[in-house]
Structures are given as C-alpha cells and as structure tokens.
Amino acid sequence: MPDVSDGPYILLSDLDIEGKRTTNSVNGEGSMVKANQSMLADHWDTQEYVDVINGSYSSEEWLYQDVYILKNEDMVDRFVEVLMIDSVFAQSTEDYTRIEIPGLDQAWVTERLECIAVKGTTISIFTHPFDSPEGMREALEVVAEKWGK
C-alpha cells in the first residue's frame, strides 16, 4: 500500500490518523490495496492498519474501503442499495441515513461503523470505527474534496 493514495480511495493519514503501518492484530493481514476491472466497474479494495502511539498508550486504527467506478450511471442507485444490504455491520437499508455533503451527489451514514459516498458513477463504502457521526461527516468531506480534484 502506498504512503500516498494513487487512486480514488483515501488513507488513514487523509483522516489525520498518523502512525506506523502494522498488521491486523486479529488475523495478521497487512495493509493493502487491490485494483481490478470488470465489464461493469473499476474497483479498488483497501484495508489499512496503523499503530497509533500516544505517550504510553498505543492503539490500532483500521480502515476498510471499497471504491467502484461504474460503467453505467443507470446502475448507481441499485448498486448503493446492494452495498447497504450487503454491509458488514448494518442490517438493512433502514440502518442508513442520508446526509448532505457538499461535493457529493449522495452520502449515507450508519450509527457508527459504515458510510457510503457517491459522486457521479463513483461509489465508496467505508468501514472504520468512527468516534462519532461528526467523524463520518469529516471522512465524507475528505472524499468529496479528493473526488472534486
């Protein structure tokens, strides 16, 4: 995984979470980004793990992200619905609330762990232990800025 994003995905450092890259303490997997293409979409799958040291306290921060650039704009709404239904932590589309983020066409948040950003045919779903709904909003604003460039 690069130190600076080379695709439409963000990194923990983009969310002002700095630390040393590490492996997942649960399963031993390392940080990575995989990119692939299909007839329907370009796709980036990322997972990042960082050890954050604050004085004598250490914590592991993590971010999972899937970014899709669909080939057909008619698929966007249905694709977002499928991502909501297939979420790791959310149970259904009803667990998502739409919010307004300048620069995004759609933005959806759950109570704590997942959010979705949409701009044109670009869609991203994030899974991260956000501290608050405001933390999700800030992450979505970072994505809006990145995708607006």
Rank of each mutant, 00 (worst) to 15 (best):
M1V: 13
M1G: 12
M1T: 12
P2Q: 10
P2A: 11
V4F: 13
S5V: 14
D6P: 07
D6Q: 03
D6K: 05
I10E: 09
L11I: 08
L12E: 15
S13P: 11
S13D: 15
D14S: 02
D16W: 08
I17D: 07
I17W: 02
K20G: 11
R21Q: 14
R21F: 10
T22I: 13
T23C: 11
N24Q: 03
N24R: 01
N24C: 13
S25K: 06
G28E: 10
V33A: 08
K34G: 13
N36G: 11
Q37S: 14
L40C: 03
A41F: 08
D42S: 06
W44V: 05
D45S: 13
T46I: 12
T46R: 02
E48W: 06
Y49T: 02
Y49R: 01
V50K: 00
V50N: 05
D51Q: 07
D51S: 04
V52W: 00
I53G: 00
N54E: 15
S56Q: 07
Y57S: 10
Y57L: 13
E60I: 06
L63R: 00
Y64C: 01
Q65E: 15
Q65Y: 04
Y68T: 02
Y68S: 00
Y68E: 03
I69T: 14
L70C: 10
L70I: 11
K71S: 15
N72A: 08
D74M: 07
D74G: 11
D74P: 01
M75Q: 02
M75S: 09
V76Y: 05
R78Q: 14
V80H: 07
V80G: 12
E81H: 07
E81W: 11
E81A: 13
E81P: 11
M84D: 12
I85Y: 12
I85G: 07
D86F: 14
S87T: 10
S87A: 15
S87I: 14
T93M: 09
T93K: 03
D95P: 11
Y96A: 05
Y96K: 02
I99F: 00
E100K: 03
P102C: 08
G103A: 14
L104V: 01
D105I: 08
D105P: 02
D105E: 07
W108C: 04
V109S: 01
V109D: 00
V109N: 00
V109Y: 00
T110L: 13
E111R: 04
E111A: 12
E111G: 15
E111I: 12
R112L: 15
L113S: 01
L113K: 00
E114C: 04
C115I: 02
C115A: 13
I116C: 04
I116F: 05
G120R: 08
T121A: 13
T121M: 15
T122S: 10
I123P: 03
S124V: 06
S124K: 02
I125L: 15
I125Y: 04
I125T: 09
F126D: 02
H128L: 10
P129L: 05
D131W: 05
P133Q: 09
E134I: 11
M136E: 11
R137A: 13
E138T: 04
A139V: 14
V142D: 06
V143S: 01
A144T: 11
A144V: 10
E145F: 06
K146Y: 01
K146S: 06
W147K: 00
G148Y: 04
K149L: 13
K149P: 02
